[in-house]
Design a binder for these strands. Structure first.
Length: 804
RNA sequence: GCUGGUGUGGUGGAAUAGGCAGACACAAGGGACUUAAAAUCCCUCGGACUAAUAAUCCGUACCGGUUCAAGUCCGGUCACCAGCACCA
């Protein structure tokens, strides 16, 4: 029998869609299950074999959950705004909307050829005005709550994209997308106050089931630290405030450092004796990008400010102030107190500038030779009223003292910055705000949403850095919704992250015109039960969408504080050479070819069998055959089909064991071993020589989530049961039948294997050991020795410990 | 440097919670079928010593430890991957 996937697969895909087999039910009494994959960006290159890995994985989960009686929502859509499309449009003089339409059509066709059980009736597209209406609506709510604000600030400017980038999008001083140099530029930007949610974004990680590495990365990114602010008086009579996590070391502060951008330099310019030198240093620092500053900072540089000194509040000592670029203006207060004895960076700097190093924490080596930074074991010395305390106690005491004297306070800081939300590009959601000279920034009325992206002739970014929209005077000039006077529209658009920050909510009720989703739908479907995505999105997308969701929770729109109950991450599929697949490396594999040659089922099976789902794995064209062979053996079982409505005794254990294993492995994202178990069961069946209807039925259902087309075909051809497999239910296993009556155990003497023998599965210690001792090899090994100990692990082994 | 992770045959990878290392595949070799090839089926397949699928020894990056028993636990070292990187 020949299996023709080219004919069979499209047939079933069509039938499923016609019958709406995978459409999530509305108003269902069933228990819900919401599975979510990161919706793709429809790029011009089409799908590569990496895309289907997560889709297939959650497809397996979804299909199994449906068979188990759940009302499953497994949707897909398109995250279609974004720069590559816009750049392509510019280059080829086609409207981005056209480009998007074309790319979506291609992606859709490719994905549908894989037989993923997406609910296509809920397909969404972030560039659809009916969709971005609600993206804009959320922005307006943020604005109304004061969480969206405009700020003049130095931004990351990509010289090639001519566009502002979020800190998160700058990799080693280069644009994440195009790799061009990123420089600093001062611009007025829309910002979102994600920092207001920093604490909850950390603490609510306790509510969700994410892999530890994902949680760790999120915490790391937010970078919470607790410490204190300390006010230093200066000889100018003003105050220089620093942030420190080590206020216990205040007695060891021998100098201060401010960042080159610190405002005090302007304030003190008339008093600074060496102002030229300081200015020159500032200029040097400004020339460097952030990347260079950190990169070149192997050797510390700086300039001492002559003419102004700071006064240490704990002992009244005058200490010098330096300007150095190892202090960042954007973190803490942009100024630090330097304690060279107990901070590595301060120590390096002190050595270079020959500054005093005073030990205030005892427990390390000579602080003149190396900084002692351990907080756990140290004891305070040379520190007046905190001498003798542990570091932790000293911190507490010091904060009390500072607070009492009014020269300091406890303070928490975060590395996380507010989210730069403006983009000076065309292909994004317009920001629904107008600026009126009289009223300032005014939101447009919600009734006017969506604010549609106007058609323009040219999407080229302007050299001034304004959005292409700024050239559209008709669109820009408008009236103020507040006073009716002349006003102009915001011409910046939103970043690509906007549409993807809430898309999972829209799937719950994708065609609603009155709300982003109905209350009923939100209450029924929230939260997402299982969200799978790439590690590359753990710090950006995941954090942004959790932030938006928390905001929506606060204003009563969504019912849960966290959007995703469970998150898993898939490993990348690498090229044959073990490198990341990319066009430039020429190692990209197109799934179309695999589907054509071997069929979607084989492709799915191979992608799941390739290795641990959470780890990267190299693609091996040679290995795919094994999966195809397995499916053919399954298909050809039809020629060995016999009657029988019950699983036969000789296959009972194999079947029950496999039902258990496959079910558990799917839940634990161990698809590779689930498939291995099915292959092993196939081998058991081959040994028996034939298969009966009951057995074939169970095998088909177990295999169905992995290889849905061929199993439906066999089900139908061999008349295994009613309707389609998708109308049936997942088989049950009987725990007592998962183990054979007799099992093989190993017999060791002193931990070395001497024999293997069959014993009753339920054998007790005495029985097993006496059986073990009856073995010839074992007898030889223990003969004439004293038995010290006898160990029996049920169903596993016997170990006899002997001594001469 | 910090955080998280990984290291097992020729290859991809298995191994419950400390209990038979190498499941399941791929490749390779041998055989059957065939005029032949492909496909299919059967056998072998970590290494050493072997006539042997007898026995023995070695073997999960490296060194040491705990244990009747270690890929798994503990201490140290090395390598690689990812993220962060002067965050006071």
């Amino acid at each position: 029998m020949k299996y023709n996937h080219l004919e069979v697969e499209p047939k079933w895909q069509k039938r499923w869609e016609e019958k709406g087999c995978f459409h999530a039910e509305e108003n269902s009494q069933k228990e819900k299950f919401y599975a979510l994959i990161e919706f793709p960006y429809p790029s011009g290159q089409g799908l590569h074999v990496g895309h289907p890995r997560p889709y297939t994985a959650l497809d397996i989960v979804s299909r199994k959950k449906r068979l188990q009686g759940y009302n499953v929502l497994y949707p897909i859509g398109w995250d279609a705004f974004g720069l590559p499309t816009e750049n392509y449009a510019i280059k080829n003089h086609i409207h981005p909307e056209e480009v998007t339409k074309k790319n979506v059509a291609r992606f859709k066709k490719q994905i549908q050829s894989l037989g993923i059980s997406f609910d296509w009736s809920r397909e969404i597209n972030t560039t659809d005005p009916d969709y971005y209406k609600w993206t804009q609506w959320i922005f307006l709510q943020l604005f109304k709550k004061g969480l969206a604000y405009k700020k003049e600030m130095a931004v990351n400017w990509c010289t090639s994209c001519k566009c502002v980038l979020a800190n998160e999008e700058v990799i080693n001083g280069q644009c994440e997308r195009c790799g061009s140099e990123v420089i600093r530029k001062v611009k007025s930007q829309w910002m979102l106050k994600i920092t207001e949610y920093a604490d909850r974004l950390i603490s609510d990680l306790d509510l969700v089931d994410y892999p530890p590495r994902v949680k760790a990365q999120q915490k790391n990114w937010i970078g919470k630290s607790t410490g204190a602010e300390v006010d230093f008086k200066t000889t100018e009579g003003d105050i220089l405030t620093v942030y420190t996590t080590r206020c216990d070391t205040l007695f060891g502060a021998t100098y201060m450092v401010i960042s080159p951008e610190h405002q005090c330099i302007e304030k003190w310019q008339d008093k600074i004796a060496n102002i030229e030198e300081v200015r020159a240093y500032q200029t040097e620092a400004a020339k460097k990008s952030d990347f260079e500053r950190t990169e070149l900072a192997k050797e510390k540089t700086g300039v001492r400010i002559d003419g102004v000194m700071a006064i240490n509040p704990v002992n009244g000592k005058e200490i010098p102030i330096f300007v150095s670029d190892y202090v960042l203006v954007s973190y803490g207060t942009g100024a630090i107190m330097a304690v060279p004895a107990h901070d590595t960076r301060d120590w390096e700097f002190a050595k270079k500038f020959n500054l005093p190093i005073i030990e205030v924490v005892k427990g390390g080596e000579d602080v003149q030779k190396e900084a002692f930074t351990d907080c756990a074991t140290g004891v305070m010395v040379n520190s007046d009223f905190i001498t003798g305390l542990s570091v932790e106690d000293a911190k507490v005491k010091m904060i009390e003292w500072l607070t009492e004297k009014g020269v300091g306070r406890a303070k928490t800081n975060y590395k996380l910055r507010d989210w730069v939300f403006s983009r000076q590009r065309y292909w994004g959601e317009p920001i629904p705000i107008v600026h009126c000279d009289k009223c300032g920034y005014v939101p447009i009325p919600e009734s006017e949403l969506p604010l549609k992206l106007p058609m323009v002739d040219s999407y080229e970014p302007t050299d001034t850095g304004e959005s292409p929209l700024s050239k559209m005077t008709d669109w820009v000039e408008t009236t103020c919704p507040h006073c009716g006077g002349k006003a102009h529209r915001e011409t910046d658009t939103m970043p690509q992250w906007a549409g993807s920050s809430w898309y999972f909510l829209r799937y719950m009720d994708p065609h609603n015109n009155d709300a982003l989703a109905s209350k009923e739908a939100l209450n029924y479907w929230s939260p997402v039960d299982w969200y799978n995505g790439g590690m590359e999105h753990t710090t950006l997308h995941l954090l942004y969408s959790r932030f938006w969701h928390k905001f929506l929770y606060d204003i009563g729109v969504v019912p849960t504080p966290e959007p995703y109950a469970k998150r898993t991450s898939h490993g990348m599929i690498l090229g044959e050479n073990g490198e990341k697949m990319s066009k430039s490396r020429g190692n990209v594999v197109n799934p179309d070819e695999i589907v054509e040659q071997y069929g979607a089922d084989t492709m799915r099976l191979y992608e799941m069998f390739i290795g641990d789902f959470e780890k990267a794995a190299p693609w091996k064209a040679e290995s795919i055959k094994g999966c195809r062979r397995f499916l053919e053996r399954y298909y050809n079982l039809q020629t060995k089909l016999i009657d029988g409505e019950e699983i036969r005794k000789e296959l009972e254990t194999s079947f029950h064991k496999t039902i258990k294993k496959v079910g558990e492995d799917i839940e634990n994202i161990k698809f590779n071993t689930a498939i291995a178990a099915l292959m092993a069961l196939m081998n058991d069946i081959a040994n028996v020589g034939n298969i009966n209807k009951a057995e074939y039925r169970v095998f088909s259902i177990l295999l169905n989530p992995f290889a849905p087309h061929i199993t439906e075909e066999v089900w139908c051809e061999a008349k295994l049961g009613e309707g389609m497999i998708v109308d049936n239910s997942w088989p049950q296993y009987d725990e007592s039948k998962c183990k054979a009556d007799e099992i093989e155990i190993a017999v060791q003497v002193n931990g070395k294997i001497k024999a293997k023998l069959m014993v009753p599965a339920e054998a007790g210690q005495t029985e097993a050991i006496s059986l073990a001792k009856s073995d010839g090899n074992v007898q030889k090994a223990i003969n004439g020795m004293n038995i010290i100990k006898e160990i029996y692990v049920k169903g596993r082994l016997v170990n006899i410990v002997v001594k001469p």
